[in-house]
């Protein structure tokens, strides 16, 4: 069980690092927004791993609550970013 736990946590770290790399190195706005979401998923995976307290114990509910809140925040932020990108493209098309 310990190995599965670690595998999950380390994948979270890896996903976060890949997301961060894509945010920093990409030029396209849309790709960067998606990369930020990927990075967020990595952080959420790490949080879920932290909640694990052993095969027989109930998981810690606080990290789960944090992930739920984090998802809501990420969805709103993505919505705002997409709206801005769309308005910007409309603006550039009309010019």
């Amino acid at each position: 069980m310990l190995t599965a736990h670690w595998l999950y946590g380390l994948s979270g770290c890896l996903i976060m690092a890949l997301g961060l790399r894509a945010v920093l190195l990409n030029d396209s706005l849309l790709q960067r927004i998606i990369a930020l979401n990927v990075m967020g998923t990595g952080v959420f995976m790490i949080l879920i791993t932290i909640a694990y307290r052993g095969p027989d114990a109930t998981p810690d509910p606080i990290p789960h609550a944090l992930v739920l809140t984090g998802i809501v925040v990420a969805v709103s932020a993505t919505a705002l970013a997409l709206t801005l990108i769309r308005r910007l493209t409309e603006e550039q098309d009309s010019d």
Partner: peptide, 12 residues
């Protein structure tokens, strides 16, 4: 357009 570009960068 300039304000929107600046705001997007600010958001990212």
């Amino acid at each position: 357009t300039a304000a929107m570009q600046a705001a997007l960068r600010y958001l990212l």
